[in-house]
């Protein structure tokens, strides 16, 4: 067997090693390799491309600042996914807080700056998926996205959600049923 094609895990180990030594090329490779997947994840979870872009940009900025703290033994993939989830959850929490404030106070909130152009353009399918997923409770959305898009085992999802596997199974089951119905109403396959 040849090593001409290295797998993600070993490549990641090498990239982290280089990144921790300050390599711009390694950071660039990590960014190119993961940003699309993470952005898709954030779009599906938040249902909003602008917010998703902000979250993913923050994830990479924090990652770039973390070279001295980042350990090599962990999985880069898991780290970035967890960072993305945390970003989405923080955004949701902030959003809830903002909604609780009065309208007068809300006027003082900084508005999101308009961007000259968007970072990403969604395919028709991703657009449908984004819309359909907004019809699901957030926890179900998270389970389904991690399972479907990232092939994450239920046990690991349970760990991320700090709940039992049976709860995760339940969220998955109910979520899939509802998503199927929502997608069927929008898409003919």
């Amino acid at each position: 067997m040849s090593f001409s094609v290295c797998n993600r895990v070993m490549e990641d180990k090498l990239l982290i090693w280089k990144f921790k030594r300050g390599s711009r090329e390694a950071l660039r490779r990590i960014y190119d390799k993961y940003h699309g997947r993470l952005l898709k994840l954030a779009v599906v979870l938040t249902g909003d491309l602008d917010i998703a872009e902000d979250i993913i940009q923050d994830v990479f900025v924090h990652f770039a600042e973390s070279a001295n703290r980042f350990g090599l033994t962990g999985s880069l993939n898991s780290y970035l996914i967890t960072s993305t989830l945390n970003g989405v959850r923080n955004q949701r929490r902030d959003n809830r807080r903002r909604r609780l404030q009065s309208l007068d106070e809300a006027e003082d909130l900084p508005s999101f700056a308009e961007r000259p152009e968007q970072w990403a353009v969604l395919s028709e399918q991703l657009e449908h998926l984004r819309c359909a997923m907004t019809g699901l409770p957030y926890e179900q959305r998270e389970v389904i996205t991690l399972r479907m898009a990232e092939n994450m085992p239920f046990g690991q999802i349970a760990g991320l959600q700090k709940t039992s596997i049976s709860t995760v199974h339940g969220r998955y089951r109910y979520g899939i049923e509802k998503l199927r119905s929502l997608l069927n109403s929008e898409v003919k396959v």
Binding site: G36, K40, V43, V121, L122, S123, Q125, L126, L129
Partner: peptide, 10 residues
């Protein structure tokens, strides 16, 4: 469907 849902970046 998830796998086919993609995005392209500017």
């Amino acid at each position: 469907y998830f796998q086919q849902a993609t995005l392209s970046t500017n």
